[in-house]
Simulated assay, not measured.
Amino acid sequence: MGDHTEETSTAYKLACTLNGTATEVDTAPARRLLHILRDDLALTGTKRSCEIGRCGACMVLVDGKAVNSCLTMAYQCEGKSIETVEGVSAGSIDPIQQAFLEEGGFQCGYCTPGMIISVKALLDSNPDPNDDEIAEALSGNICRCTGYGGIWRAVKLAAERRRHTS
């Protein structure tokens, strides 16, 4: 939300692929990815919440792995592929998002983008996760509203649909 002390060092050009598009951003090497996405690139689907890596609201994919953007520095993204929730739904609603809608996997929706990213990372690497694998994949995401039942059902539905369409 304003200047952050880690953002005041010498600027450099961060080159990465963002949601499938080659992107260059003038920033500081130690600037947090969360602030670059939200403040510089207006990708506000990535939520700002705890800013200490405990809630998962700021989750994005970096080279296919779910990471907390509030803990990821610009220099760590150099040459990497970054996908935000906006990239997940580019063009049309993703089957994971559809499953969240159908199964009531959200209430206030604040945690939902981070949940969607975590589920995408899981299903991209494991199309048929068991309950323990789902629990592990979602362990970095906190939802304060739903009680997780709808989220759990949404993960299972999305996995089932992905298996039947591939």
Rank of each mutant, 00 (worst) to 15 (best):
K47A: 10
K47E: 11
K47L: 09
R48F: 08
S49V: 01
C50F: 09
C50R: 08
C50Q: 12
E51Q: 13
E51F: 07
I52D: 11
I52N: 12
G53C: 08
G53Y: 05
R54H: 13
R54G: 14
G56K: 05
A57C: 14
A57T: 05
C58L: 10
C58E: 13
M59P: 00
V60F: 13
L61S: 03
L61V: 05
L61N: 03
V62G: 03
V62S: 11
V62F: 04
V62L: 14
G64C: 08
K65P: 00
K65E: 15
A66G: 06
A66D: 09
N68C: 14
N68L: 05
N68M: 04
N68F: 12
S69C: 11
C70P: 12
C70Q: 08
C70I: 12
L71D: 10
L71V: 09
T72M: 14
T72C: 14
T72A: 10
M73C: 04
M73R: 07
A74G: 02
A74D: 01
A74C: 14
Y75R: 09
Y75M: 10
Q76Y: 00
Q76S: 12
C77S: 03
E78L: 03
K80C: 14
K80G: 03
S81I: 06
I82Q: 07
E83P: 01
T84S: 14
T84C: 12
T84L: 06
V85K: 00
E86D: 15
E86Y: 08
G87Y: 05
G87W: 08
G87L: 02
V88L: 15
A90I: 07
A90M: 07
G91L: 06
S92K: 14
I93D: 01
I93L: 15
D94N: 15
I96D: 02
I96H: 07
Q97V: 02
Q98D: 13
Q98L: 11
Q98S: 14
A99H: 09
A99F: 08
L101S: 09
E102Q: 09
E103Y: 00
E103C: 15
G104I: 04
G104K: 04
G105W: 04
F106C: 08
F106T: 12
Q107D: 08
Q107S: 13
C108N: 07
G109A: 06
G109Y: 05
G109E: 03
Y110S: 01
C111F: 10
C111T: 09
C111A: 07
T112D: 10
T112Q: 13
P113N: 07
M115A: 01
M115R: 00
M115C: 00
M115P: 01
I117K: 01
I117D: 03
I117T: 13
I117N: 06
S118L: 03
V119K: 02
K120D: 06
K120V: 13
K120S: 02
A121E: 14
L122C: 09
L123I: 04
